[in-house]
């Protein structure tokens, strides 16, 4: 795999001049994925969302590679169709049989965990030669920070408000990475923009496999998380160091932790800087805060027991 110096020789497939917010984690994720993808041509699909609208505002496109957006819930199905066309046109003799092209679909957590889950599950089960990348920022940011099934418990969002009757989101988040691992596809990984080496390595593996691969990438949203926009990468790093977002992969059914966390820090270090968790630190919410830590510990331990196992 390539180091940073080597990566500078590759073309950045996402051009600047897009209109994502300052400090957006999604574009960092896209750049790292596509730099890791290697040198073969890549066709990109994208679900409706911040990334899509901000990078394709007519008549400007930030994509330096073929790009398609269809709708919100169907980037996986759409890219599966593109990949099928590639095979069909090869069979028709219109594309040389030895031509190699890679296919990737991006979606946010709303477009992936929620409305696009069926489309994603179907495409992965069918075995298309494609990578699906979820950039997880834990809410519907494009429509204004509504809760999704990726939103952490206790987080404020505009549809999981904070008040006397309720302290933010009342449910636990869904573990999509493990759901995708249960599809028994060749490669599934969880990565974070803060760990570029781990992320680009995972992207390289995902693009190299024949068949479907899934990457779930932690990509903070300064606007939705109520954090300063220079701290996007810092907060992502904190998520990894507190065990909130473990970095691991499932390769042909083998679970492996890719970044070890030696002295796992308390989850409050991840929560405290974020305005969306402010209320958890108010008097009376001690039990809720403790519950967040308990959940992280429990999930961490459950995951540890899978590493090295088949």
């Amino acid at each position: 795999m390539a180091n940073l110096k080597e990566l500078t020789h590759r073309e950045d497939r996402l051009e600047g001049g897009h209109r994502l917010c300052a400090g957006c984690g999604a574009s960092i994720a896209v750049r790292q994925v596509l730099l890791g993808a290697g040198l073969e041509p890549v066709v990109v699909g994208c679900a409706t969302g911040c990334l899509e609208v901000s990078t394709t505002i007519y008549p400007y496109s930030s994509w330096k590679t073929p790009f398609i957006h269809n709708a919100f819930e169907n980037s996986a199905a759409t890219v599966s169709g593109v990949e099928a066309a590639f095979k069909g046109l090869k069979a028709a003799g219109k594309i040389p049989a030895d031509k190699k092209v890679k296919f990737v679909a991006f979606g946010g957590d709303g477009g992936t965990y929620d409305i696009g889950l069926q489309s994603l599950s179907g495409a992965m089960e069918r075995g298309h030669d494609m990578v699906y990348v979820c950039y997880d920022n834990g809410a519907y940011m494009n429509t204004g920070i509504q809760r999704s099934s990726a939103t952490p418990k206790g987080a404020w969002a505009t549809t999981s408000e904070v008040g006397v009757a309720q302290q933010g989101k009342q449910q636990r988040r869904k573990d999509l990475t493990q759901i995708m691992a249960a599809h028994n596809i060749p490669y599934v990984a969880q990565a974070s923009i803060s760990h570029w080496k781990d992320l680009t390595m995972k992207a390289e593996k995902a693009f190299a496999v024949e068949g479907p691969a899934f990457l779930n990438i932690f990509a903070p949203c300064p606007r939705g998380w109520r954090i300063p926009f220079d701290t996007t990468v810092e907060i992502a790093k904190s998520a990894v160091q507190t065990g909130y977002w473990p970095l691991y992969e499932v390769e042909d059914g083998v679970w492996r932790q890719t970044v070890k966390v030696m002295n796992r820090k308390p989850v409050v270090e991840f929560l405290k800087p974020q305005g969306r968790f402010k209320h958890l630190f108010a008097p009376g919410n001690e039990a809720l805060l403790a519950e967040v830590q308990t959940d992280v510990d429990r999930q961490w331990d459950a995951l540890q027991s899978r590493f090295g196992s088949v």
Binding site: G16, A22, Y58, S61, W63, K64
Partner: peptide, 19 residues
């Protein structure tokens, strides 16, 4: 169909003014 026939032409769009 609202196709943008040039790739990466947002290089011509200035977002530096946000700064």
């Amino acid at each position: 169909g609202a196709v943008i026939p040039e790739s990466g032409n947002s290089r011509d769009y200035v977002t530096g003014g946000w700064r």
